[in-house]
Amino acid sequence: MAFAVVVLGLWQTGTTIDATHKDGLFIDPFFYGRPSGIASQLWTWIQNGTAQGPLWLQVATTLEEAFLGFLIGVVLGVVFGVALGRVRLLSDVFAPYIKALNAMPRVVLGSIFIITIGYGIWSKVALAVVLVFFVVFFNAFQGVREVDRVLIANARILGASERQLSTHVILPSALSWILASLHTSFGFALVGAVVGEYLGAIHGIGLIIATAQATFNPNGVFAAMFILAVVALTAEVALTWLENRLIKWRPNTLEVPRI
């Protein structure tokens, strides 16, 4: 907190001191904006809306795209990850393709999606899905591979069928890997949505950034980044809560209640 105050303070003073002499400025607000300018930009958006319409609509659009992309990507990632992790034949057939796709810089797919799917939300959802899928897939796959062999042996001895083995041993064991990947992958969903909007959209935070950039308005870019940061932090809190709900059985080394 103190750190943020110091940085913002330096930034603000750096862009204000000696404004009469052009050379006396440490930081040029024309390129780098300034905190007070960012705040007033935010305030203007809240009061008067953005060039694309009311601010809440832009945030809601981006959130909708990110959430849809996140959900679809997670489901696909878990299903494929578990299937390929469990079935040797499937992983032998598909693993090379998935590795090749993963090596590709996937953000370029955004342009293709906008050409094929259009300017609406689904081209952004598609980009988010692609970004999320690989993160979740590799974690689920690895999680299945790392299941303790003794636990599998024990379940077999206790009489587990193949399906019971999946639901009672493999999924719960892989769950901590999968949940860990959700933190990163929500970030990726947001990146997918924003980059997609930046490339071409009707609404959204990415579009605000693109507009601000086109009009040389650094305060606008920073203000949009600030909104994104708030969204990402909120999602992070929600995911941590979900994780703690789902993995009650794991010792929580970070939050040991003192008694």
């Binding site: 003794v150 636990l151 001895i157 009672h168 719960p172 064991s173 769950l175 993995i247 059985w249």
Partner: peptide, 27 residues
Amino acid sequence: VGYVFQVDAVFPWKSVLDNVATGPRFR
């Protein structure tokens, strides 16, 4: 066949009750 393993083999995500009930549930 019942097999008590040398290393820990109870399921970390199941409570003691659920762990002990696992065999009958599987059956």
